[in-house]
Simulated assay, not measured.
Amino acid sequence: MNYALLLAQAGPLVRETGQWIQSVVKTIDQKDIIYKGKNDLVSYVDREAEARLKDVLAKFLPEAQFIAEETANDYSEIGEGYYWVIDPLDGTTNFLHQLPAYAVSVGLILNKQPVLGMIYEPNRDELFCGAKGLGATLNGHDISVSPQEDMGKALLATGFPYHDFTYQDRYLNLLKNLMKKSHGLRRIGAAAIDLAYTACGRFEGFFEYNLKPWDVAAGKIILEEAGGTVTNFSGGTDVVFKGEIIGAGPIFKEFLEELQLHWFNEK
């Protein structure tokens, strides 16, 4: 598969979709918002953006199927071939509140592992791309993870539970300990952006649980191609469908050990 060609074809589509989203951000009204579940919002913008992406991506790679946020049902029995994994608007709540932190995220998986990813953040006009063996770029320029090796100087990103609070106490205890061990914690509200920012060195690491495939498929491969390490909380490679992710540059080993100490030993 020619991943360089796919990036050249699909990158402009992802950017154009994000620019369209940006053009309508100030037109959204409360009547346009639909609640899919507790704190799980969607608007016509998410759905139209997804339709735009799927329509064109199907022409670039006809054999690929789709796992997309607004139309996905059961993805537990997916096959081993190519799948486009799409979040047409990661950070929908931010978008609906006009907070400038949301993105279009498009990943391509093969045998359930990401091989190509694109994340476009329209507020800063930043297109992050990566593909297996090709490295990672930001607006066409090579990027790499932060070289920081000292956990105490690391700025970390995460997300907060927003609809499933089963592990809330465990999570808060982990946050409390990471606050003491790191330079600080940030919560942007869009996992795709967190992963992209870790890939280009703005964050030293990122972790979150209770995620969906479309939250992480693109970001995982971009971060890996930028020199980072990405696993689930147990250190395994099943990230896209596991629902949990931790990724970082040189601090990864210490970061993972700290997470495991407080995650798996809490009740």
Rank of each mutant, 00 (worst) to 15 (best):
Q65R: 09
N39S: 08
I143C: 00
A218L: 12
G249A: 03
V14R: 00
G140A: 04
D169A: 14
V104A: 03
F95H: 02
F207W: 08
A199P: 00
A157Y: 04
F264C: 05
E48V: 05
F165Q: 06
G117L: 00
V45G: 04
M1C: 04
V239F: 00
R124S: 15
G133D: 12
A157W: 05
R47M: 11
V56K: 10
P12C: 09
L138F: 01
K253C: 09
L256P: 02
K242R: 14
L155P: 01
A131V: 06
M179F: 08
G117P: 01
P161E: 07
I188D: 12
Q65W: 04
D142N: 09
F165K: 14
K212D: 07
E254C: 07
L185Y: 12
Q260E: 13
D142L: 13
L134T: 01
F241W: 11
N73G: 10
K180T: 11
L53T: 05
N177E: 14
N265A: 00
D125E: 15
W263Q: 02
K153R: 14
I78D: 03
I34D: 03
R170D: 15
E126V: 00
G140N: 06
D32F: 05
D29T: 14
G219Y: 04
Q9P: 11
D238L: 01
L110I: 06
G205D: 11
Q113A: 14
T166H: 13
A68T: 10
G189I: 14
Q9V: 08
I193M: 06
K242H: 09
E204A: 13
A154L: 04
N123P: 06
L155A: 08
L223W: 01
F128L: 08
A68H: 07
F60A: 15
R124K: 15
N232W: 03
Q22S: 05
L5G: 07
M151W: 02
K26M: 11
E70N: 04
A190W: 00
E126K: 12
N173C: 12
N177A: 10
L178S: 04
G79W: 11
A103V: 15
A196G: 10
K38Y: 13
L259N: 01
